[in-house]
Amino acid sequence: MNAAVLQEYLPLYGKAALLTIRLGILGVLLSILTGLFCAAVQYLKIPLLKTIVRVYIELSRNTPLLIQLFFIYYGLPKIGIRTDPAVCGVAGLTFLGGSYMAEAFRSGLESIPPIQEESALSLGMTRIQAAVHVILPQALSVSVPAFVANVIFLLKETSVFSAVSLMDLMFTAKDLIGLYYDTTEALFLLVVFYLLMLLPVSILGSIIEKKVRYAGFGT
C-alpha cells in the first residue's frame, strides 16, 4: 500500500463520507416520521388510509432500494417528476426506511397487552391520555432494538446511492479503481471510512439497547 496515494485520496473520501452522512441522517429522520405516521394509522385502524399504508409497506419491503432509486431517478421524470440526485437519494431511503420503521413501531405497539389500556381507561383516562401516558412510553421502549437495527440498515443501504450518480464512497472508490488502478488503497479507504461511520452508530446502538433493557420496565 502506498502512503502517498492514501494521503492524496483522503480528502476525496472525506467529502464523499460527508455526503453519505448528510443524506443518511436526513433519510433516517424522514423514515422515522413516515414510520410513526404509518404506525399511528394502523394502530388507530383508520379506514382506507390503513389499506394504503399496508400496500405501501408491502411494496417498500419487498423491493430493493436500488430499483426504487432507478424508478424515482430515471422513471419518474418521464411523467414530469424530476429530482436531483440528492433529493432522489433521500426520497428513496425514506420510501424504504418508512416501512421498516413503521413495522418496528407497530410491533412495539402490539406488544403492549390490552389490559394496559383497559386499566388506564378504567381509571378515567381518555384514549388519548392512555396512549400518551401509558401505551406510547412502553411501546417506544420495546421498539428500540428494532429501531437501532433499522438505523444501521438504512445507513448501510446508502451504499447504492452511486447508482443515481451521487458521489458517495462507493462512487469515489469505483472511480479511483477505474482511473488509476490503485485498487488496494481505494478499497482500504472504503472499508476504513464505512467503519468510521458505522461502528460508532453500532456501538451507541448497543449501549442504548442495554440501557433500555436494564433500566427497563419489563415485568
Binding site: 444501521i152 448501510k156 443501504e157 446508502t158 451504499s159 447504492v160 462507493m170 472508490a173 469505483k174 479503481i177 485498487t183 488496494t184 481505494a186 478499497l187 472504503l190 472499508v191 464505512y194 467503519l195 458505522l198 461502528l199 453500532s202
Partner: peptide, 19 residues
C-alpha cells in the same frame, strides 16, 4: 454485518484480482 454488502462485493470483485 457491519459492512454494506456493496462494499463486500467490491472487496471480493476488485480485491481478489489485485491480491
Amino acid at each position: 454485518r457491519i459492512m454494506p454488502q456493496m462494499v463486500l462485493l467490491f472487496l471480493v470483485f476488485f480485491g481478489t484480482t489485485r491480491a
